[in-house]
Nucleic acid binder design. Sequence first.
DNA 1: ACCCAGGGTCATA
DNA 2: TATGACCATGGG
Length: 229
Amino acid sequence: MNVNEHTPALMEIYRRLETMHARRGWHWWPDADPFEVCVGAILVQNTAWSNVERALALLRGAGALDPGTMAALPPGRVEELVRPSGQYRQKARKLAAFLSLVEAQGSLERLLALPASDLRERLLATWGIGPETADAIVVYAARQPALVIDAYTQRIFSRLGVGPAHTTDYDEWQRFFVAALEPDRDLWARYHALVVMHAKHLCRKTRPRCGECLLADRCPGRDTGEGVP
DNA sequence: ACCCAGGGTCATA
DNA sequence: TATGACCATGGG
């Protein structure tokens, strides 16, 4: 199985994350509606999640959180609905591209039922969908194995001295984690979910996304607000 | 008045 | 291949 010299460190960090956050809002993407996950994965690109929630609320209010309905909307209407998520013209165009992929496969269910490697490949071939968005859709919408790497992951783990040094290359980081973790969809899904939860919820008050509380027992300066050099 | 956010694309050298 | 401009809203 996938185990190497980095496995103990990664699993120790995972356990600490779980201990710190499992009791908190565990209700993350894992339980959400597949199409909503796909839309959210696109809308959240370089955008605060709070803005995505506004857009999702507008889409829901318009009854547009469904592939067929959204595809039937006039283009300008989608722009209007996703506007709060920022880069709204780009995002509307990306959603349209994704919808044409769904159309090409017959249905969202068909698309998501493709083998993970095929699904990822087709997503990457779609305009506006890069590696992170593709992996998020594979693991949280299709519920198949994929390990999402994001800015949080790279910043936290490089800070901890864990992971490939001196690179921000997505595939390199992903290979590092995949080589060290058991190929377990739920483990991968939770690992990324916990990283995001940790980065947003705990580390924001001190230095942004520092990750130091993974080495200490809790976030340094969380209550005092004092920074660490 | 900045700065940034759970990226991705495109033009340039 | 590697860097930089660009997208654009809302919160700190």
